[in-house]
Design a protein around this nucleic acid. Structure first.
Lengths: 222, 222
DNA sequence: AGAATCGTTAATGTATACACTAAGCGAATT
DNA sequence: AATTCGCTTAGTGTATACATTAACGATTCT
């Protein structure tokens, strides 16, 4: 793999995993030494991360990992609502049934998966990712897909900040199931509304966890 | 200004103005010679253009100006609909009245502006841009704003491909006025629907012009 | 004759030297 | 003592040499 691509993925994953915390300064020479590549691929990676919105120019010559707080989470979910509801509605109009029938079966089996050990959790997330991909595919709109890709990047970061419990994931699976069923019934409005409900509940859960984390951090500070 | 920034703007504007036509190959050395800067700022500019979606990797080592056809125009307008309707609704909820009252007055005066000479047309577009900016500001959502910025880049390109006549612009001003009035009346749904109507009519107009241009091109080929 | 492989070439990918700019610290002057 | 000016330094911005790779063409083998 190209050094620039590799560097980009490493830095991106470190930001998404929270290993590089919001506010962390990303200097070219420093990262160049750390990751053992020259400044050129580092610059390329940082440019892409700035374009992604994961890194922000704090001053003309200082890049930092973008901050994330409750207000930003709310704003992101607002955008997700606009995009994903629309995408689900388009999928209901245009999608072929086969992939969604498969997803329906998989989602119905989700509770047992989540009762399983580690591997089940991974498999669960694969199914959710497959749903995103199926909706993308069905919506047949490359502009929408790339906007969604951007949004999902930031969503992934929030997901890490607020790790889910099995209860929430079971509920989420049911919510996803409603979306899939709406798409299978070719009901765009219903698909959009089911997506809306899922996002609202997901936001509530994310905010609750974010606040409890923040409370922890500030109590650690005392 | 930095060479990389300057190069980016030059290439971007040339693409938006149609000076660099869809499919044009953008090779580093070639552009480096043409624009009289080294490959480094060229690479930076090309990366940004790829991120913008204005340039596409056709093969692992060949960048071309992204193609634009009727289907893509429709897809883009679909995304615009999702984003701008939502933004207008948010503006109706959250915006302060003052900037929209000013916009209302300006849009009411638009017909006279368009009857004017050159300067009037420029002033008209300034007002439309100000409306975009006011909605952005009022929606108070940075993620939404950056998604809209991306969409507007592509819209600007389509606008160039299909130059408007005064009649269409006068109608557009009336449509914008409906959006502004809905925002002033704090009616989110109305604002969203007014935006929907504007986009639909704008799309129809753009497609009609695009087709007539395509027809011209193919008749030129005979 | 056709297809496949290897070599050449021309492009991008990477490293690095050099340029420039901005920020911080110190000294000098008011 | 405080403020301002200038110098130093550390960082990014640019150019370019070198490495690498992919594409094209020619040659050879089937």
């Amino acid at each position: 793999m190209r050094a620039g691509e590799k560097t980009y993925r490493i830095l991106r994953d470190e930001i998404l995993e929270g290993k590089l915390r919001p506010g962390t300064v990303l200097a070219e020479v420093e990262q160049s030494n750390r990751l053992q590549v020259s400044r050129t691929p580092i610059r390329q990676a940082l440019s892409r991360l700035v374009a992604d919105g994961l890194v922000t120019a704090q001053s003309p010559r200082m890049l930092v990992v973008t901050d994330m707080d409750a207000d930003r989470v709310r704003a992101l979910y607002e955008l997700r609502h606009a995009l994903e509801s629309h995408a689900a509605a388009l999928a209901a109009r245009r999608g072929s049934s086969a992939p969604f029938e498969l997803l329906q079966r998989n989602l119905l089996a989700a509770p047992e998966l989540l009762a399983d050990s580690e591997g089940g959790l991974r498999r669960y997330f694969e199914i959710v990712d497959a749903l995103d991909a199926a909706i993308d595919e069905a919506a047949q709109n490359s502009y929408l897909s790339s906007a969604l890709a951007s949004v999902r990047l930031h969503s992934a970061r929030i997901r890490r900040l607020s790790q889910h419990d099995a209860d929430r994931l079971r509920s989420a699976a049911e919510e996803h199931l409603l979306v899939v069923e709406a798409i299978l019934e070719r009901d765009p409005e219903l698909a959009a509304h089911a997506t809306h409900i899922h996002l609202r509940r997901s936001l509530t859960s994310a905010l609750a966890r974010l606040e409890s984390h923040t409370a922890e951090s500030s109590s650690q500070r005392t």
